[in-house]
Design a protein around this nucleic acid. Structure first.
Ligand SMILES: [Zn+2]
Ligand SMILES: [Zn+2]
Ligand SMILES: [Zn+2]
Ligand SMILES: [Zn+2]
Lengths: 152, 152
DNA sequence: ATAATATATGTTATGTTATAACATTGCAAT
DNA sequence: ATTGCAATGTTATAACATAACATATATTAT
């Protein structure tokens, strides 16, 4: 459950800029700010915490729709994920590389780990097929304690 | 994605009563009412819909804490699951038989299917072990369309 | 360049989901 | 009877999210 280095964070931001440029996606100032806030936090972050930070950065109060719209854009384009079990958002460090990924979330220190496991994806899609079910979205979130926190 | 018959629903309610009796769990009137409302709905149900129904049943307004407390009791004892991706609750039809189960949720007709798949559980727990992670709770929710709805 | 169009943001208000805090009740053990 | 405990009632508010409409900014067509 390693945390991200500064260079990884910068690379992540740069990658999003590139993807938006080449796909003609409007990465506006607000959307960029929201993405940066999310990846720099490096832990699951809540919408209203983002709202506070945006307000501070721009020296004027922003409002919930501003933040939620930016989040929607980022999620739609695979740059950010929502963790439904904790109403929080995290940056994706391998956008466009996956459809389903899953998350280990430490309840104590709030650190998280995004994982991709093809065999897990396979099992899930086999189950879906077996049930004649067409998947549009998968939520797989594992809450518990990371090594550090479970040893304390 | 078959729906439950009346007898299955009754059996489910009866089973909870038995489990509570033998485990000395206080299945109070309100808790029982909430459980019945959830299983009879037979689709994911929202807390405030339960609240309305409880108020009607008892001919007096109930309040959110009443419902949320009952839900907490039912979840703690494995009788009910929360679907985090849609802020809704469903009855469990095999309580005590599992730790992790997962859900196929149709976005259109709102029907759901609870599944248990040992190989899936195994994969998840292997990932957790590999990451030195101690699981306390797993959320696996698959949204999409059921056979009927994807054919329409 | 100008107008038309689409996209994004600002703003106000409100809807939805969930919990904190404290009072009251009912019941069982001493 | 008194204490203790578990559950519920009650009031208020916290936390999360969106509807609706106004305004601004960027793109495109003329
Ligand atoms: Zn991702
Ligand atoms: Zn931790
Ligand atoms: Zn279950
Ligand atoms: Zn359906």
């Amino acid at each position: 459950m390693k945390s991200k280095s500064t260079s990884e964070l910068k690379a992540s931001i740069h990658r999003v800029e590139e993807i938006c440029k080449s796909n003609k996606l409007g990465l506006t100032e607000i959307r960029k700010q929201v993405f940066e806030i999310i990846v720099k936090k490096n832990k699951p972050i809540k919408a209203y915490e983002i709202l506070d930070k945006i307000s501070n950065i721009n020296n004027k109060p922003s409002h919930p729709p501003t933040v939620y719209r930016a989040i929607d854009f980022l999620i739609e384009n695979g740059f950010v994920h929502k963790l439904n079990s904790i109403n929080s958002f995290v940056g994706c460090f391998h956008p466009k590389a996956h459809k389903e990924c899953y998350f280990l979330i430490c309840k104590k220190c709030n650190i998280y780990q995004e994982c991709c496991d093809d065999s897990l994806k396979d099992r899930i899609s086999k189950t879906a097929i077996h049930n004649n079910f067409v998947i549009s979205n998968t939520t797989l979130e594992i809450e518990g304690h990371c090594l550090d926190c479970s040893q304390k």
